[in-house]
């Protein structure tokens, strides 16, 4: 089991008001799954991914990812956990605008302590895997949305993570490009055996899912596969 979460709660304070983003979320996920969490905006999908990825801490409950207890980990332990076990893909790609596609991929590797030459070689291989070897020297502004998201996928997978978390990865793309991206991620899931969790409101994503969930008002529930 790569993820075991029990009774996850997350409460944000906005002034005097308290907003419950997660309300007793339970989740078990096997390694190698392509899990899709469907739900409307504001339903708690991003918060759940942040908690599973060690970006945020739950207000209550326990969560183990790849055997690592996140709720009690120190800040530096969480940093190491993210660096060594998690790959992130965001809706707006979150690439550094000043760096080339290759340099954006290298960042994760350098953070992990890779040497320059080895990181460069591996980075080029990762870009080739997402079909962008020929664009490695281009900056994000010179790439299309779909290409930028491919770079983000290459970056996420470059550190050989146990889990890839994608938050609305196709939210900023047209439907044809979105489909290409989803197919690419599904292929990588199958070929590399990596676990993916995709948070989205795009129903099209469901056809690639091996596990399907629905998230609404901070509650997660399994959804039947059609």
């Amino acid at each position: 089991m790569i993820i075991q979460a029990r009774g996850l709660e997350k409460i944000y304070r906005r002034g005097a008001q308290q907003v419950a983003a997660l309300r007793g979320v339970d989740l078990d996920l096997q390694a190698g799954e392509f899990a899709v969490i469907l739900g409307p905006s504001g339903g708690g999908k991003s918060t759940l991914l942040h908690v599973l990825g060690g970006i945020d801490r739950p207000s209550a409950g326990q969560v183990r990812v790849n055997g690592f207890a996140l709720e009690s980990a120190s800040e530096s332990a969480l940093t190491r956990f993210r660096r060594d076990h998690i790959g992130f893909i965001f809706q707006f790609y979150n690439l550094l605008p000043s760096l080339s596609a290759l340099d954006n991929v290298l960042l994760s590797l350098l953070a992990k302590g890779w040497g320059w030459q080895a990181a460069r070689q591996h980075g080029l291989e990762m870009l080739a895997q997402v079909g962008l070897a020929h664009r490695s020297g281009h900056r994000p502004a010179e790439l299309s949305g779909g290409e930028q998201q491919r770079v983000a996928i290459a970056r996420a997978l470059s550190v050989d993570p146990a889990l890839v978390l994608a938050d609305e990865p196709t939210g900023d793309l047209d439907s044809a490009t979105a489909n290409e991206l989803l197919e690419l991620m599904a292929d990588l899931n199958r070929s590399l055996g990596k676990t993916f969790i995709i948070a989205t409101h795009n129903q099209e994503t469901c056809r690639f899912a091996t596990s399907l969930f629905e998230m609404r008002d901070g509650r997660l529930s399994p959804k039947g596969m059609s």
């Binding site: 990825g53 970006i55 940093t79 190491r80 660096r83 060594d84 979150n94 550094l96 960042l107 953070a111």
Partner: peptide, 16 residues
């Protein structure tokens, strides 16, 4: 700050 947050997400420590 968005870029710094991204670097933190990627595993750059506060010290880095």
């Amino acid at each position: 700050s968005p870029e710094i947050a991204l670097l933190q997400v990627l595993g750059f420590s506060q010290g880095n």
